[in-house]
Amino acid sequence: MPSAILDAHISIVIPAKNEAVGLAELVPELRDTLPAAEIIVVDDGSDDATAHVAAEAGARVLSHPYSKGNGASIKTGARAAHGELLVFMDGDGQHPASEVPKLLAQLEAGYDLVIAARSRSAQATLGRWLANSIYNRLASVFVGHPVADLTSGFRAVRAARFREFLHMLPNGFSYPTTSTMAFYRAGYSVNFLPVEIRPRKDESKSHIRLLRDGARFLLIIFRVGTLYSPLKLFMPISAVFFSSGVGYYAYTLSQMGRFTNGAGLLLITSILVFLIGLVSEQITNLLYASSQE
């Protein structure tokens, strides 16, 4: 590992809910790979031996009295961490400790946020891979840069930069999406690094259920747009309504010789959608401006 990284104080934050088995392997691996790093396990209301196993392995354990969510655990760990560099990884054993130095080396190279990009084979199901592909393509359109893995929770970041956006992060599973888009929006340097991710040993242990969380994850698509640049989302919608209104007006004018209520409704809707987008854009600008103060 580069010497500059060795001199920096590194904190590794692991949100965990009922991950005693995975942590029993992961924490010792991290100790061997980065002996001087601070390892923080945030026990999110587990009902197994997660906290005990992590503490026995040498991690600093922070416990929630009840389950608050993955994002809430990330925020708890980020607030308590002492390191200048933060590494976030799952406690289920998917994220190998051996890949952490590669992420940290990219921070030394000048990036503010480095995200571990998963391959198709590393994603548990075809459905999840397809959903993530849609998120990645949408995010790429908004930010104007290729986004290789928008939802990866394995990442390294400069602590001071990350804490600027803590108030914007949700408590649920979409914290990676929000933080990634926030870094792009603020003009910070983001990089995606292909790494080897281990397949989940037991998919039944996943806290994400595609059917249960499908609607919520669809909202991520709209969060991406409204978080990064609302007008990029609202303008096309407004244009569709406006074009439909003009087209319908042309049709009714040629067929009935008059302007109909339907055409008027479409045109008014296009104006309202545009104005909502404009107001949202101003609110977003104020939100990011306040985070930079």
Rank of each mutant, 00 (worst) to 15 (best):
T76V: 14
L85W: 15
P101M: 13
N132T: 10
G127R: 10
T125K: 12
S121V: 09
K102S: 15
N132I: 03
N136A: 08
A105G: 14
V114H: 00
L104N: 02
N136E: 08
L85K: 02
S98F: 08
P146V: 14
G71F: 00
F88W: 06
F142K: 00
K102L: 15
S73H: 05
A122W: 05
L113T: 00
R79W: 06
I134C: 10
M89P: 00
Y111D: 15
S133Y: 03
S140Q: 02
S133F: 00
H82L: 08
G110C: 08
H82I: 03
H82A: 14
L107S: 00
S140K: 08
V87C: 05
A80K: 00
V87I: 11
D90W: 01
L104S: 11
T76F: 00
K102G: 13
A105V: 02
A105L: 03
A117H: 13
P101T: 13
A139P: 00
E99H: 12
I74N: 05
S133R: 15
V87E: 04
G69W: 00
H145V: 12
S73V: 04
Q123S: 06
R79K: 14
N132V: 05
H82K: 14
Y111V: 06
A72S: 03
A139N: 11
L86E: 01
